[in-house]
């Protein structure tokens, strides 16, 4: 477990007076179930500068979505309980904010898009009205139909005038996700959190949405936190990648470094399970076993029961996230082998 005193891994060049846009320090979050505290996020530290794109990768249940939702304190509490750590947005801790301060952060600084655009849009309101609602909250001076149309054009919705009065169910999944993005951008956020934005979409639509996100990032100076379990889209979008396993970050590196030279056995296993277009076509290798359940994480290194390179002491020795190469952090003592 990393301690609060260890510096948060970052490639930010200087520790100057302006705090980073997002600074998560040693975040620990429990889910309370039948009186037991089940740790879902265990000592996650992340830093994200203005305009930077970070990708959070991991299997289902590794704590990546909970970490992302915590940035605007959107995890329902109860059952969640923050056991420690800080989430600093522009220097102030989200976990200590009053509801009013929190509402200013939500949308105002951090906007979200989610996995299922179909169920993330309110089915009984017209999409135009839902976007307008965001504008009214954060940019009342621009809360008019022209601005909604501009946003719809920005996210590539054809004939936006006729879409304005549509209900969500009248649109395809890809269009719904574009509406979600337009709604998220309406408030001019400084950070867009995209929680598996393409998982529920067709493959061709996935590529379009990823392309849209990349294009928007180029047009608008905005940071991006992309959560995915698909390493295939990481290289396209992210400056840095953080790999999570069982509530902890196991590897953190610039994306080209991580993709070309993964050091943690879990990252390597994850990459071997992604189909490649080039080279010999063989069987994809799946990672044996399952992600451990909340509350029953293994002793020592949490990946050791599934690790092909596990050694006897992996089951006893707890692991630290260490900077083994410049801005390349790994939670495995045997990374070099």
């Amino acid at each position: 477990m990393s301690s609060a005193s260890s510096p948060a891994p970052s490639n930010a060049t200087s520790a100057d007076a302006t705090p980073p846009l997002l600074d998560i320090r040693d975040l620990r979050l429990d889910f309370m179930k039948d009186g037991r505290a089940l740790r879902a996020v265990d000592g996650v530290s992340l830093r994200l500068g203005a305009g930077e794109a970070l990708c959070l990768v991991g299997e289902s249940g590794c704590g990546k979505s909970v970490t992302a939702l915590s940035i605007a304190r959107l995890v329902p509490s109860p059952p969640a309980r923050y056991a420690g750590g800080e989430i600093r947005v522009n220097g102030s801790d989200v976990l200590k904010m009053s509801p009013r301060e929190l509402r200013a952060i939500r949308g105002g600084v951090v906007s979200y898009i989610f996995q299922e655009p179909g169920s993330s849009l309110n089915p009984v309101f017209r999409v135009g009205a839902q976007i307008l609602e965001s504008l009214k909250l954060h940019r009342p001076e621009a809360a008019n139909e022209e601005e909604v149309l501009r946003l719809l054009r920005l996210v590539g919705i054809p004939a936006p005038e006729s879409r304005l009065r549509d209900y969500p169910h009248q649109l395809s999944g890809g269009m719904q996700q574009r509406i979600m993005i337009a709604m998220a951008l309406a408030s001019h956020p400084r950070l867009l959190v995209a929680d598996e934005p393409t998982t529920a979409l067709d493959v061709t639509i996935q590529a379009q949405i990823i392309e849209l996100l990349r294009e928007l990032r180029r047009q608008i100076q905005m940071s991006l936190l992309l959560i995915t379990h698909n390493l295939g889209i990481v290289g396209d979008l992210a400056d840095r990648v953080a790999v999570m396993y069982a509530g902890q970050i196991v590897e953190l590196a610039p994306s080209h470094t991580l993709l070309s030279r993964p050091l943690h056995p879990y990252t390597r296993a994850l990459m071997n399970s992604v189909p490649k277009l080039k080279g010999q076509v063989g069987r994809l290798s799946a990672i044996p076993g399952n992600v451990p359940n909340l509350g029953s994480f293994p002793e020592g290194c949490r990946f050791h029961p599934r690790c092909p390179q596990a050694r006897p002491d992996c089951s006893t020795q707890s692991t630290q996230l260490l900077e083994v190469e410049p801005s390349h952090w790994v939670r495995c003592p045997y990374w070099s082998t």
């Binding site: 200013a104 952060i105 979200y112 989610f114 299922e116 169920s119 408030s187």
Partner: peptide, 15 residues
Amino acid sequence: RAEFVTTARAKGLPE
């Protein structure tokens, strides 16, 4: 528990 409620909260709407 629906996701659009999370979306509404994420927008910054009062509870």
